[in-house]
Design a binder for these strands. Sequence first.
RNA 1: GGGCGCGUGGUGGAAUGGUAGACACGUUGGAUUCAAAAUCCAAUGCUCUUAGAGCGUGAGAGUUCGAGUCUCUCCGCGCCCACCA
Length: 866
Amino acid sequence: MTERYNIKECEAKWRAKWDDNNCFEAHEDADKEKYYVLEMFPYPSGRIHVGHVRNYTLGDVVARYRRAKGYNVLRPMGWDAFGLPAENAAIDRGVHPAKWTISNTAEMREQLKSMGLAIDWSREITTCMPEYYRHEQKMFLRFLKNGIAYRKESIVNWDPVDNTVLANEQVVDGKGWRTGAPVERKKLNQWFLKITDYADDLLEGLEALDRWPEKVRTMQKNWIGKSQGLKLNFTIFHPEQSEGSQNKGEDFSANPEMTLEVFTTRPDTIFGASFAAIAADHPLAEKLAGEKEGFADFIRQCQATGTSEAAIEQAEKLGFDTGYTVQHPFLEDVKLPLYIANFILMDYGTGAIYGVPAHDQRDYDFAQKYDLPIKQVIDHDEANTEQEAYTGAGKLINSDFLNGLDIENAKAEIIKQCEELGIGEGTTQYRLRDWGISRQRYWGCPIPVVYRESDGACIPVPEDQLPVELPEDIDFSKPGNPLDNHPTWKHTTCPQTGQPAIRETDTFDTFFESSWYQFRYCDPHNETEPVGKDKSDYWMPQSGGVEQYIGGVEHAVLHLLYARFFTRAMKTCGYVSCDEPFLGLFTQGMVTHETYQDTDGKWLFPYEYEALNDKSVAKVGPSIKMSKSKKNVVDPEDILDTYGADAARLFILSDSPPERDLEWTESGIEGAWKFVNKLHRIISDSIDNLPGANTPKPSDFSEKASELRSVSHKTINGISKSIEDFAMNKAVAQMRELSNAISSFRPEGETDQWALRESFEILIKLINPMMPHLAEELWSQLGHENLLTNEPWPIADESLLKEETVTIGVQVNGKMRATINIAMDANEETAREAALAQDNVQRTMDGKQIRKFIYVPGKIVNLVIG
RNA sequence: GGGCGCGUGGUGGAAUGGUAGACACGUUGGAUUCAAAAUCCAAUGCUCUUAGAGCGUGAGAGUUCGAGUCUCUCCGCGCCCACCA
């Protein structure tokens, strides 16, 4: 009997050994196949949470497995270090953001290290350091030269609590994604990146990402939102001209101010149009209706309608009749009334539509309210335009030259006609907008441009004057942008003329940093370039970037789309050759925990609930995502301290498939801890009787030894496949099965002992990616001098994988009645005899004839009787 | 409103169209112990009286020799998007 496994000491010992031997440092090696594993880097909030533990454990299994398989693995780590919490800490506690951030990274680095992760720490990056952000300033200048970055005045989403601009992606239900405050609209000069130039490429690229979850690809596809349609020009008529007059001789089409451009994806329904409408903030709205009575009220009403889903759901369709009309392009006698309507969005299409009530529900509602004609132009059995709009397939009717065509052909025909007449053209429209990257914050990368005071010219800061560093003496007591408030920092001179100039006081959106960090890891200490081409071409060549990227699904359209865009932009600028940054993507589920509430609805900590003598004054709530306010957070440091890294890792891998939510339970982590101890005990108890490490393989084995060997070798392939499939819970199950087989094995004699040692060694190698400390310890206890971490993955002996006999089911008319044990390759006759020999089969057959006999070797026998 | 996904024991979850419930958690009984913890052994889908039989993957239909798995309809849940013309 060996002494009890001292988890803490032992784990620390092996971590030190890996460090001393630089086990996980990656080097470019053209002779080895590379494998780049990356997990989304953390924001240095100060402490790791269980979600991090899950994320990095998954990555560690992949990294250690691939390493053992002989790949040249790159597995780096860093800090997504710019962001608002640092500024909030500065405001709340008076700590400087830099100091707060850096001390947080120090703490979290130690926490991560205590998990025993196979990380190349020599490549660590921290995005708030000038060594990192100077490169993105240079990159920005190159983006400018290549027309990828530009500046324009625009209406932006303004978060009144954080006092900053938000990207569309950061507005959720009309509220700021962090503060939850209703977003306001504000006009500002902002920097943008032309992500829309790459819209089509980003969309097409999704096709090739077959190792991405379908869900994420769909979300990106919907976000890009490509739709084909027609842009069509209508001529606008003055109220006097249209009012029942025969005056249609006047040609306004030559007057661009009096034409209205609309966008539609259903040009086929043009003959069903009964009105036109523009957005409240359309430039023509003020011009056509500004003087009219009630207009100001109407605009106010439009703005008052919230953008939350509930508001939209219930919002009535509201219109304001301008009195103007537009000429129907194909029906000379028809002039459509022109409305300003609250359901038209200025920032999609042209901010103007023509309404076809019979075939669009919104137009239908609008037409009902304002008593406009509902003219059906698509015929189908299911269409009932008395009741609601019909949007399905059908044939064109009431549509002159389009009659009889199906929708697709009608679209093509009408677009052709419009193009020939010069009144419209077929176009592609995207939902995706350019990415606004200006933020009125201190703790971000300064945008490296200055504005000359004399003429306001925007001058890029020359490369040799970079980086533009953040000032350290900063005052957070005043509201607004601290950089703007700084007494001296923004005052500088024009690098071209030497005249006084003002620095850009906005900083980059922090998604900027995380859009290219995957490249920086390839060459983290390069002083002149973001990444050396030789390095990026080795780790992220044209044909492939990161082999396996792992993170939360919440980044499906933000970070993951930006990073794909950046990869293309960087390629355009000649930095890299790679088309896609992440070839494989795995999105993990959340970690949840039970909640506890007392009868007043007050949340309780688990220990508070446990301490209650009378449990009826509180109730156990559902297991939901851990959050401070719900008091159901588990601190990984406590877990690592109590149970050790291996137990924590094992539990997090074992209970649920990684893509699903995982419920954190006390009993679960305890079960994992017990298993760690059990495995240690099993091996320690057997060790004295095992043959030495390099004892030659015996030629014959007992039956039970052969069976054990067969199980062990099958498990090699089983676990390998499970890890490659990201089915870590199944890998754990298989590992436990093998350990159960081993612990019930009673060796008798030398060859049995040899087989036992072989199975131990296989098991140890297989658990290594999941529980590396324990594996390393057991490996050394078995008498090995080298590090297990440097051992290759075991290879299954093919001859042990074959099944000689198999137990298969016997069905009668498809119902299971018995099982038989026959040779794997037994012929049909043998199977029939064995099946018919079963009492239960005979009884069920009840003397009836066999009409059909089905035998699938190794699978099933089915007797069809009757 | 649109899109995607999911419904399997008391619980987490396994099942290339072929023995449903692997592996665990929990529970029950037993061994060990002065006692407890830990450990070990056994049982554990449901129903019926044990040997045994019947029924079972949200509901209903279909395809098939055979369906948790494929198809359709319905019910329930979750996520994402959303006045996107």
